[in-house]
Simulated scan of single mutants.
Amino acid sequence: MNYTLHQLYVFLKVAQNKSITKAAVELHLTQPAVSIQLRNFQEQFEFPLTEVIGRKLYITDFGQEIAIAAEKVLSEVEAINYKTLAYKGELSGRLKISIVSTGKYVMPYFLSDFLKQHPGVDLILDVTNKRQVLESLEHNEVDFSLVSVLPDAIQIEKVELLPNALYMMVNASQTFDKKNYDVSILEELAVIYREEGSGTRYIMEKFIENNNLNVPKKFELTGNEAVKQAVLAGLGCSIMPLIGVKNELNNGSLQIVPVKGLPIKSNWNLIWLKGKKFSPVANAYLQFIQNEKERIIADSFQWIEEKNKKGIIQLK
């Protein structure tokens, strides 16, 4: 047999995604290129690795066993690469972080310099909702997680990164000219929610519940970007994190409605399981955050502190 590491990797991605198209996207290859590699790999076995029923790709039992073996082989190769870098005195290995979807506006700034300093570190960043973030943390599948709502049922340790403030946002074409509105305004408007399991939705629902509001008309969308686009289109209002709408406030396409009790304030926290034994990479990253946090905030997030101090909001 003369299969290559590349063929193993391509087949593993096909097996994991159960789709040549999805594997091609993940591998940054064309679909025909993936199909050719899969065919060349298959030719070296007398038993089928995959089968197509209808238009759906299935991995055979034999293919599943080969996929497991391929993953082990590729993990060992990866370990060899890391050991080579370590022998040269370079920090190497994987850094695994899960973040809530709005955290994509935060986390890259706390990663950029660290990854530039340590090119031997591979980053695995999972961007999802709060529920799945906490599941991956609880199952010890990641080194760190980024959340704005701390978990109740998991023992954790944390580093506070920066403030998180949520305001009521509407399309800028709508007229809201009062200096302050009562919270009952949410009963008069279509309110756009994030999906179940979202931290932003949890905060928003708590605010509505604590103010005994009856919101008769509401929409549910998956992801902060989808909610933002719906608000931009004038479908309704939403209570959204300030950090995710800087550009829209700057260009005048969104406006903040001053509502009694808002903004809702919390903090972005980098969290990890209490008592977790860190890898050298994770340990180095935690030290980096502790040493560089204030500089990163001053360089990239000073506008948030300034606007939260002023309370509201005409970004320049």
Score class of each variant (00 low, 15 high):
residue 173 S to I: 05
residue 202 Y to T: 15
residue 36 I to C: 04
residue 141 E to S: 12
residue 172 A to Y: 00
residue 232 L to Q: 01
residue 53 I to M: 03
residue 94 R to G: 03
residue 218 K to D: 02
residue 207 F to Q: 07
residue 78 E to D: 12
residue 31 Q to G: 04
residue 13 K to N: 10
residue 299 D to M: 10
residue 169 M to P: 07
residue 134 L to H: 05
residue 204 M to N: 08
residue 99 I to D: 02
residue 30 T to E: 08
residue 161 L to V: 14
residue 145 S to W: 02
residue 165 A to L: 06
residue 11 F to P: 03
residue 73 V to H: 13
residue 53 I to D: 07
residue 68 I to A: 10
residue 181 Y to K: 09
residue 242 L to D: 09
residue 174 Q to W: 04
residue 138 E to M: 12
residue 230 A to E: 01
residue 177 D to S: 13
residue 152 D to I: 15
residue 228 K to T: 11
residue 72 K to Q: 08
residue 2 N to C: 04
residue 300 S to L: 07
residue 169 M to C: 13
residue 53 I to K: 10
residue 101 S to W: 00
residue 283 N to W: 11
residue 24 A to C: 04
residue 193 Y to F: 13
residue 85 L to A: 13
residue 40 N to C: 03
residue 146 L to T: 08
residue 118 H to P: 04
residue 293 K to C: 08
residue 10 V to A: 00
residue 38 L to D: 01
residue 42 Q to M: 09
residue 24 A to I: 04
residue 112 S to R: 15
residue 83 K to D: 14
residue 279 S to G: 10
residue 191 V to Q: 11
residue 299 D to I: 13
residue 6 H to T: 13
residue 193 Y to C: 09
residue 279 S to T: 15
residue 53 I to S: 04
residue 86 A to V: 13
residue 247 N to A: 13
residue 293 K to A: 10
residue 13 K to V: 00
residue 314 Q to H: 03
residue 102 T to W: 08
residue 139 H to L: 15
residue 58 Y to H: 14
residue 266 S to Q: 14
residue 92 S to Y: 05
residue 180 N to V: 07
residue 202 Y to V: 12
residue 268 W to V: 12
residue 221 L to R: 06
residue 210 N to Y: 06
residue 245 V to H: 00
residue 264 I to P: 01
residue 247 N to F: 02
residue 169 M to R: 03
residue 164 N to Q: 10
residue 8 L to W: 05
residue 1 M to P: 07
residue 56 K to E: 11
residue 277 K to S: 11
residue 208 I to R: 09
residue 167 Y to C: 05
residue 278 F to M: 11
residue 245 V to G: 00
residue 54 G to H: 01
residue 199 G to I: 06
residue 281 V to Y: 05
residue 313 I to A: 09
residue 231 V to D: 00
residue 269 N to Y: 10
residue 99 I to L: 06
residue 168 M to V: 15
residue 120 G to F: 08
residue 214 N to W: 07
residue 218 K to S: 12
residue 281 V to C: 08
residue 210 N to S: 14
residue 85 L to T: 09
residue 183 V to N: 02
residue 42 Q to F: 03
residue 112 S to L: 14
residue 67 A to S: 13
residue 166 L to M: 14
residue 259 V to E: 03
residue 290 Q to V: 00
residue 286 L to C: 06
residue 97 I to S: 04
residue 30 T to K: 05
residue 259 V to S: 05
residue 209 E to G: 04
residue 85 L to C: 02
residue 275 G to C: 02
residue 229 Q to A: 08
residue 290 Q to D: 01
residue 157 E to W: 01
residue 126 D to T: 15
residue 127 V to Q: 03
residue 71 E to M: 11
residue 316 K to R: 06
residue 223 G to P: 01
residue 43 E to H: 03
residue 277 K to E: 10
residue 25 V to C: 06
residue 29 L to F: 00
residue 225 E to H: 07
residue 22 K to D: 11
residue 119 P to S: 02
residue 126 D to W: 09
residue 160 E to N: 12
residue 139 H to A: 15
residue 196 E to L: 08
residue 35 S to M: 05
residue 117 Q to A: 15
residue 36 I to L: 11
residue 186 L to N: 11
residue 312 I to W: 07
residue 98 S to M: 01
residue 301 F to L: 14
residue 26 E to G: 14
